[in-house]
């Protein structure tokens, strides 16, 4: 897990990037049932980690992300980022959503600069940072295009650049590459990992794709029935090509992840409490 030098150094001196203590979140459903999306969950993520969260749909992955982002408040327990309690969303925790959030009425460059602009970053600095990021995600030629003129994969790259441009120490990604084909995903994985190693930030990445988790993460969590049921560090060398991802070490991790996912499905029904 602590294979990155910067992660080890900062862990000793600074508070954790994300810390959840005994967090619970319950939803009331229209049917009158209640659903415990997150129950008594504790979790610490150190600065510089790339954490992928796996788990069945509706078992609390996204709720977890929304709690950290500040879109939801916990019913019990505490959520902290960089040692401070989370009070709503903020620029210290960037979010890349599953749904496209590029502003359709701003050109690619203006989208990428928007976060810096609202935080009052000077124009010259903004331009330089945007140039750098467009270069990194391969969109330099499309700086003055409207989002509608981009393909699906290019839009995702622009969305990633827009959030990275804001230099958030923590980055939350909610199934960001759903619906893209294999080749486009591979490109985006390279984009994200290279930006991550350069920016030295912490990434919390929700996905339902084990291969994606293994390709990206330094640490994989399996969340099921509102708790972390499995927590494993992934020490595979980078870049992670096909050979690495099909090597014995990777297969071993994959097997144990699958086992925990299977166990989770077996007890799924228990989480619903009938009304009354």
């Amino acid at each position: 897990m602590k294979d990155l030098p910067h992660a080890r150094e900062s862990a000793a001196s600074t508070p954790p990037a994300i810390a959840l203590r005994d967090v619970s979140k319950v939803f009331e459903l229209e049917t009158g049932e209640t659903l415990t999306a997150v129950s008594d969950l504790s979790l610490t993520i150190e600065p510089g980690e790339f954490v992928c969260v796996l788990g069945p749909s509706g078992h609390g992955k996204s709720t977890l992300l929304n709690l950290v982002a500040g879109f939801l408040e916990p019913d019990a327990g505490s959520v902290e980022a960089h040692g401070d309690p989370v009070k709503g969303p903020g620029p210290d925790r960037g979010v890349i959503f599953q749904r496209d959030t590029l502003f359709l009425w701003k050109r690619v460059r203006d989208n990428i600069e928007y976060g810096m602009k609202v935080r009052g970053v000077p124009k010259a600095e903004r331009t330089a940072k945007a140039d750098e990021l467009m270069e990194a995600v391969g969109l330099t030629k499309f700086a003055s295009s409207w989002p509608r003129q981009l393909s699906g994969g290019m839009r995702r790259r622009a969305a990633i650049a827009a959030v990275f441009a804001n230099e958030p120490p923590v980055l939350l990604m909610d199934e960001p590459f759903v619906g893209l084909d294999y080749a486009r995903r591979a490109v985006l994985h390279d984009v994200v990992t290279s930006l991550w190693s350069r920016e030295n930030n912490t990434i919390f990445f929700v996905t339902h794709d084990i291969d994606e988790a293994l390709a990206l993460a330094t640490r994989v969590l399996v969340v099921a029935n509102g708790s972390v049921v499995y927590d494993v560090s992934v020490d595979l060398p980078r870049p992670r090509g096909t050979d690495t991802l099909n090597g014995p070490e990777a297969l071993e991790i994959r097997k144990s992840i699958l086992r925990h996912l299977d166990e989770a499905m077996a007890v799924e029904e228990e989480r619903f409490t009938p009304a009354g």
């Binding site: 939803f27 009331e28 459903l29 229209e30 049917t31 009158g32 659903l35 999306a37 509706g58 619903f272």
Partner: peptide, 17 residues
């Protein structure tokens, strides 16, 4: 806003307004 985080299996299980 409220249903996005908890989307358990069927669509009919929407959080109550």
């Amino acid at each position: 806003a409220t249903s996005a985080p908890a989307r358990p299996r069927a669509a009919k299980r929407k959080p109550r307004r």
